[in-house]
Simulated assay, not measured.
Amino acid sequence: LGMALAPESRRDQGLCLNLPVGMNLNLPIYKRISSNMLISGTKEKAEADRQIADLRIKTPTRNALASSLSGGNQQKIVIGKWLAHGAKLFIFDEPTVGVDVGTKAEIYRLFS
């Protein structure tokens, strides 16, 4: 419907902590990067790498588990996956709770 929700609790509702960063970022767009029920590995990697660079997510690799990242970087994943989706209406429930001051500024930059 063109709507996206970034919930207050990123750990309980916004992320799949046991999945890699790249997969978390791509969850809402797998339909777009797939053809005939097959995920394009090239598109999957490219989309994840683009989001990691654009959002300045500090991760050793797109294959690192989301649970291994800081709270601020986890929050960037939650926001980034919906930005990649292309929603027209975003609902952010306390998007900067539990993140450091520098990351708060980066998150607010994403909203402008």
Rank of each mutant, 00 (worst) to 15 (best):
L1Y: 01
G2H: 06
M3L: 13
L5Q: 08
L5T: 04
A6P: 04
Q13G: 10
G14S: 14
G14A: 13
L15W: 00
C16W: 10
N18F: 12
G22K: 15
N26M: 02
L27I: 14
L27V: 11
Y30S: 01
K31D: 07
R32M: 05
R32D: 13
R32C: 02
N36M: 09
M37I: 06
S40E: 09
G41C: 06
G41A: 06
G41F: 03
K45A: 14
E47I: 08
E47K: 15
R50C: 08
R50D: 14
I52T: 01
I52R: 00
D54V: 07
L55P: 04
L55F: 15
L55Y: 00
K58Y: 07
T61W: 00
S67R: 15
S67Q: 15
N73P: 01
Q74F: 07
Q74N: 08
K76E: 04
K76Y: 08
I77H: 01
I77R: 00
I77N: 01
V78Y: 04
V78Q: 11
I79Y: 00
I79L: 02
G80V: 06
G80Y: 06
K81T: 11
K81A: 11
K81F: 09
W82Y: 13
L83E: 11
H85L: 14
A87E: 04
K88F: 04
F90K: 06
D93C: 05
P95I: 02
V97D: 12
V97I: 11
V97M: 10
G98M: 08
D100T: 12
K104I: 08
A105Q: 09
E106I: 01
Y108P: 03
Y108E: 09
Y108F: 14
R109P: 03
